[in-house]
């Protein structure tokens, strides 16, 4: 047993705080916007040049000039602003975005992240991921705990890195891990996914980690 993709997104949504400016990556992170708690105001940033991203448009109201970073049609909100790519990444690299939630291929126990390239395969590019993990103060990764049965939470990433010492929190289908990315305090399992067991995590994790009291 483990969390579904939607449950992982719901868990990631617990990292949101009222008034946050947040960038959500493609995939499970996008689902986080469905779980923003009622009464909480969160502005979503889309790195192609938009702050205050609204939901998908009604059919027939799509605007080719109004897309998100995944090239999906979206809508404006009363709070929306538009800006250039340089301005967009100035707010990302300048540390003005509070939280970045993104997917990963591998995470290492020191907070290293790999999510853009598999050597020998057609490389699509890193897009804005390197800027986000380098510039946003808090980085949350949401990913499946394993890929084809192989661990993704590792002692060291084997794939080319997106950033070094960048991941603060990892949410997988099996649990939640805090990572002391700058202090060298390692990985701590702080929460179990629905139905997941400590044994199951031990079997499918290469990184060393400690287990929080009470688990």
């Amino acid at each position: 047993m483990a969390w579904t993709r939607d449950q992982m997104a719901a868990r990631a949504a617990q990292e949101l705080r009222d008034g946050f400016y947040v960038n959500l990556g493609i995939g499970i992170p996008t689902l986080v916007s469905n779980h923003i708690p009622p009464g909480m105001t969160v502005q979503l940033q889309s790195e192609n040049g938009m702050l205050g991203m609204g939901p998908f448009p009604y059919e027939g109201e799509e605007d080719a000039d109004l897309i998100n970073a995944g090239k999906q049609t979206v809508t404006e909100l009363p709070t929306t602003s538009f800006f250039s790519s340089a301005e967009s990444f100035a707010m990302i690299r300048g540390g003005h975005i509070d939280l970045s939630i993104l997917g990963a291929m591998q995470v290492a126990e020191n907070g290293d992240l790999a999510n853009w390239m598999i050597p020998g395969k057609m490389v699509k590019g890193m897009g804005g991921a390197m800027d986000l993990v380098a510039g946003v103060p808090r980085v949350v990764v949401v990913m499946e705990h394993t890929a084809k049965g192989k661990p993704k939470l590792l002692k060291e990433c084997t794939l080319p890195l997106t950033g070094t010492h960048v991941v603060d929190l990892l949410i997988t289908d099996l649990g939640v891990f805090e990572i002391d990315k700058k202090g060298g305090g390692g990985v701590t399992l702080v929460e179990l996914g629905e139905g997941a067991t400590l044994e199951q995590i031990a079997e499918s994790t290469e990184a060393s980690y400690s287990v929080a009291a009470g688990l």
Partner: peptide
């Protein structure tokens, strides 16, 4: 003005 990912929500 092509749209790459036409995403909508139901009314």
């Amino acid at each position: 003005k092509h749209i790459e990912q036409r995403t909508t929500r139901p009314r």
